[in-house]
Computed example of a mutant assay.
Amino acid sequence: MDVETKIKEDMRGLGCESDIKISLAYQLYIHLIDEKLMYDTEYCYNKDIDALYIVARPSKNEKMNIYVPIPTSEDISMDKINEMQENLCTIETGPAINLAFTEADSTTVIYSFTKGLIERQNVEKAAANRNERRSFINSELKKNKNNILNDAMNGGIVDEDDCMILE
């Protein structure tokens, strides 16, 4: 039995039934060992979220990092990332999770997501806030249009309190 078959059987033995997830995890596992030269590299499975992932140390003295293989063809939402963080992150690994987006030709790009840095605002809410600000500015401009034009034409009025005389 060759090494690839043995590793893939071990991954299946953890409880993962998906051939695609096993293949992606195997590619990532080899990538982290051979190309990234990671330490203490292990594959793990979380049945609650059906995720096969890799834990590894970038150097001997660093903490364990979590790497989740994701095919580039899969759409992934912030809710899914939050779910992975909730189920995979531990005190030992910290609040970060690394998503390893893998292309069909084995090209792998890794992005880190750290929980708790900032909550991303809902797209609809952000658009509503932007529109509300625009409406407020437009109404203020319309309300003060005559004063703004008058000040622009006459150079404006400067109160003595606004000026400081330099001697």
Rank of each mutant, 00 (worst) to 15 (best):
residue 154 N to Y: 07
residue 123 V to I: 14
residue 100 A to C: 15
residue 124 E to N: 04
residue 94 G to Y: 01
residue 147 N to W: 03
residue 108 T to M: 04
residue 96 A to K: 04
residue 76 I to F: 13
residue 126 A to E: 08
residue 158 V to E: 02
residue 77 S to V: 10
residue 87 N to L: 06
residue 139 S to L: 11
residue 2 D to W: 02
residue 45 Y to E: 14
residue 25 A to E: 05
residue 87 N to K: 09
residue 11 M to T: 10
residue 134 R to S: 14
residue 43 Y to S: 03
residue 116 G to F: 13
residue 167 E to L: 06
residue 48 D to V: 13
residue 33 I to M: 10
residue 163 C to F: 03
residue 58 P to H: 07
residue 151 D to P: 00
residue 156 G to Y: 00
residue 12 R to F: 08
residue 2 D to C: 05
residue 143 K to G: 13
residue 4 E to L: 02
residue 134 R to D: 12
residue 154 N to S: 06
residue 99 L to T: 03
residue 119 E to V: 15
residue 58 P to M: 12
residue 129 N to W: 11
residue 29 Y to P: 09
residue 21 K to R: 09
residue 44 C to D: 05
residue 110 I to Y: 08
residue 58 P to K: 10
residue 83 E to K: 03
residue 7 I to W: 12
residue 4 E to N: 01
residue 108 T to R: 08
residue 104 A to S: 08
residue 165 I to V: 10
residue 159 D to H: 08
residue 149 L to W: 09
residue 125 K to S: 11
residue 53 Y to C: 01
residue 139 S to R: 09
residue 75 D to C: 05
residue 155 G to W: 10
residue 24 L to R: 02
residue 12 R to P: 00
residue 114 T to V: 12
residue 78 M to Q: 04
residue 127 A to Y: 09
residue 62 E to K: 13
residue 2 D to V: 12
residue 121 Q to E: 12
residue 103 E to F: 11
residue 166 L to P: 00
residue 47 K to M: 08
residue 100 A to M: 14
residue 135 S to Q: 13
residue 167 E to P: 09
residue 148 I to Y: 11
residue 149 L to A: 04
residue 2 D to A: 06
residue 85 Q to F: 00
residue 45 Y to Q: 07
residue 123 V to M: 11
residue 110 I to K: 03
residue 71 P to H: 15
residue 91 I to W: 13
residue 148 I to E: 10
residue 5 T to E: 14
residue 34 D to S: 13
residue 151 D to M: 07
residue 54 I to V: 02
residue 15 G to S: 02
residue 17 E to R: 01
residue 123 V to E: 10
residue 123 V to K: 06
residue 153 M to N: 12
residue 61 N to P: 01
residue 101 F to E: 07
residue 46 N to P: 02
residue 109 V to S: 01
residue 109 V to M: 05
residue 77 S to G: 10
residue 125 K to R: 12
residue 81 I to A: 05
residue 51 A to Q: 07
residue 76 I to G: 12
residue 33 I to T: 02
residue 63 K to A: 09
residue 3 V to W: 04
residue 65 N to I: 06
residue 146 N to P: 00
residue 147 N to A: 11
residue 69 P to F: 06
residue 81 I to G: 03
residue 132 E to M: 02
residue 133 R to Y: 06
residue 90 T to K: 04
residue 131 N to I: 11
residue 41 T to F: 12
residue 61 N to W: 01
residue 25 A to S: 15
residue 68 V to I: 09
residue 16 C to S: 05
residue 23 S to M: 02
residue 164 M to C: 13
residue 147 N to G: 05
residue 44 C to I: 13
residue 35 E to R: 15
residue 35 E to T: 13
residue 45 Y to R: 06
residue 22 I to F: 14
residue 84 M to H: 04
residue 99 L to F: 05
residue 21 K to N: 14
residue 165 I to H: 08
residue 79 D to L: 07
residue 156 G to M: 02
residue 14 L to C: 10
residue 119 E to D: 12
residue 21 K to D: 11
residue 27 Q to R: 05
residue 167 E to W: 06
residue 131 N to E: 04
residue 166 L to W: 03
residue 161 D to R: 03
residue 19 D to M: 14
residue 146 N to F: 01
residue 91 I to G: 12
residue 134 R to W: 08
residue 23 S to G: 14
residue 18 S to H: 04
